[in-house]
Design a protein around this nucleic acid. Structure first.
Length: 571
RNA sequence: GGCGGUAUAGCUCAGUUGGUUAGAGCAGCGGAAUCAUAAUCCGCGUGUCCGGGGUUCAAGUCCCUGUACCGCCA
């Protein structure tokens, strides 16, 4: 039995995530966690909301709420939706937790002790009306280059020239619209990532089994231009982790907080502490400290490609720079983007399906199946309603659902609602078992390798094999001449249903549970041997014909939803 | 502007370190079967592998270049 620490990228707090966010980290992480648990491994699966930073403050202000209250509410909303999608986190934490505050301050202090923090004084734009310093992208004005009137402080969207906020003509705050801006001197802490360059490069180079998407992004940052740059890790904000050196005050840093990208990944560790403090576990160090039992842990992170730089460089710089025995990541599984019907998902334009809306339309298994079987692994991929309808109807309703239906109903009408006795397995059955055994090995290998689409494809092929068998065996024909033979065939088919329920659970946990209940079995052990697994339901074992496992998505629904989520036209 | 990614059948996508007639699912066409959610099973794929050069005995697969789309620029 191995031990697997699994984390999903932390969803940001300021709203409900769309299906692209879901399939880019949380959902495949859940698939892997469920599979590893099913194989009998010890798993700690963690995720949390990422709550600090300016966008959270602005979202709270827009909602007319105190930022702490806002985050607490949104955390509960996101937790509830995660539960709706059956994301099996061992703990769903918060980056604003006291545990994370303390740990973030600890890391900062430790990095300072190691000589990896320096203070930098810089001029930034302060808005008197807003009472705050403004990040570059919250300042707009006229571009000195092309005259575009809504150029952002970091770049002009019209002529794409990179700008400094001080370059803008007639600059104003996008928060309040105020033009009462001034330059102020302010002091910030920088993490000396440049000093860590070689160490990080060596570490990245040792990860020869990582996906190209992951290492190429890391190498780009390591070697681009002047190489890895030092990075500001503090901000002039109220909402966040107060800048302290461990438990001590940090002279000159009063009133400042750590930048969200410094404290967020540290929450991966703090979340394990929260897990213990919530009474769900009793030893977090066993997962995170290599000097306290974590050296046999395999740590896998899941994330979208936009998060890769932070996980391959920034966070490792924190971990490695501390020179404390923290567990470093062993494998990073990164994903490309899921597009929506020819474009991007867009929160502001209401374009695409968001997690809460998805659950209102259909049970989570539909979404889990489609998203995972179309996961954007090698390149960006595309959600269309037509494809969704076809895949869900074909794979779930026709191939799997209908298999259950035809087997259980046939048995009920010919033998009653119990596993029939009599007959023996012949060549056709042995051939099926051999086929399934080979496919199971392939399925297990793909799941182990986190090849999500290929896993789904193989699982589907295993479902198809059941229909294929039924077609060959044709118990409806054999029943007329040799009822015993038909009994053996149906006995096998009923066992296939239980078998499918067990192996499909990582993808479609609810349907699997429903099928297990219908088969009146709680034997969920992974089928290491197919032949044995197909004899678990013995003659005489009672079952119930389940309701329709997956109903079909109608054309009317497809059209209605397609219209509903198309988003507002751009002005 | 810089950097990165992608471009393969009508659609969504696979194609290991270059090597036999380029694959899967869906859609489409034909057939079988009738237990079932009109579900299932079998058979059928010549598609300038985006264009143009090049390396090689051999390139969808490597190099250069052009085009298109997408993303990132903290």
């Amino acid at each position: 039995m191995a031990r697997h620490l699994i984390t999903s990228a932390l969803p940001y707090i300021n709203g409900i995530k769309h299906l692209g966010n879901l399939v880019g980290s949380q959902l495949p992480a859940d698939l892997f966690a469920r599979y590893m648990r099913a194989r009998g491994h010890e798993v700690l699966f963690l995720c949390a909301t990422d709550e600090h930073g300016t966008p959270a403050e602005l979202a709270a202000a827009k909602a007319g709420k105190d930022v702490a209250d806002y985050c607490a509410e949104m955390h509960d909303v996101q937790a509830k939706i995660a539960e709706g999608f059956r994301l099996s986190f061992d703990h769903y934490g918060r980056s604003s937790s006291p545990q994370n505050h303390a740990l973030t301050q600890h890391f900062a202090g430790r990095l300072a002790d190691m000589g990896l923090i320096r203070e930098v004084s810089e001029k930034m734009i302060y808005s008197n009306a807003d009472g705050r310093f403004l990040p570059d992208r919250y300042i707009e004005g006229t571009c000195p280059n092309c005259g575009f009137e809504s150029a952002r402080g970091d770049q002009c969207d019209n002529c794409t020239k990179q700008l400094d906020p001080t370059d803008l003509i007639n600059p104003y705050s996008t928060i309040s619209g105020s033009t009462d801006l001034e330059e102020r001197e302010t002091k910030h802490l920088f993490l000396c990532q440049s000093q860590m360059r070689e160490k990080l490069q060596t570490w990245i180079d040792s990860k020869t089994d990582w996906p190209v998407l992951t290492t190429s992004i890391a190498n780009k940052w390591l070697n681009d231009g002047d190489g890895l740059q030092d990075r500001g890790i503090t901000r002039d904000l109220d909402w966040g982790v107060a800048v302290k050196k461990g438990g001590e005050d940090w002279p000159g840093m009063e009133g400042k907080v750590f930048y969200v990208w410094f404290d967020a990944p540290i929450e991966y560790i703090a979340c394990a502490q929260e897990w213990v403090d919530a009474g769900k576990g009793d030893d977090w160090e066993r997962w995170w400290r290599t000097d306290k039992g974590a050296d046999d842990v395999t740590y896998t992170q899941f994330m979208g490609k936009d998060n890769v730089p932070f996980h391959t460089l920034s966070f490792p710089a924190t971990i490695l720079g501390s020179e404390e025995p923290w567990k470093a990541v062993d494998y990073i599984k990164s994903f490309n983007y899921l597009n929506y019907d020819g474009g991007q998902f867009s929160t502001s334009r209401g374009r695409g399906v968001f997690m809460d809306q998805a659950l209102e339309l259909l049970p989570s298994d539909y979404w889990r199946w489609w998203l995972l079987s179309h996961a954007p692994e090698s390149s960006d991929s595309e959600f269309t309603w037509e494809n969704f309808q076809q895949s869900a109807n074909k794979d779930l309703a026709d191939v799997l659902g209908n298999f259950v239906s035809r087997v259980t109903k046939f048995c009920r009408s010919k033998f009653g609602e119990e596993v029939p006795a009599g007959g023996e397995f012949g060549e056709t059955e042995q051939a099926l078992i051999a086929d399934l055994s080979a496919r199971m090995r392939a399925y297990e290998q793909h799941m182990q390798d986190m090849e999500v689409r290929k896993s789904a494809q193989e699982l589907r092929a295993i479902w198809v094999a059941g229909n294929e068998y039924l077609q060959n065996a044709a118990p409806w024909s054999t029943f007329k001449e040799d009822p015993d033979k038909a009994a053996a065939q149906i006995r096998l088919a009923l066992n296939l249903i239980r078998f499918y329920a067990v192996i499909s659970a990582p993808f479609i946990p609810d349907a699997s549970a429903t099928l297990m209940a219908a088969m009146q079995s709680d034997h969920t052990n992974w089928p290491d041997d197919v032949a044995t697994a197909l004899e678990i339901l013995a003659p005489g074992h009672a079952f119930a014909v389940p309701d329709v496992t997956f109903r079909k998505i109608t054309d009317d629904e497809r059209e209605e939803w397609s219209e509903k989520f198309a988003g507002k036209r751009e002005a």
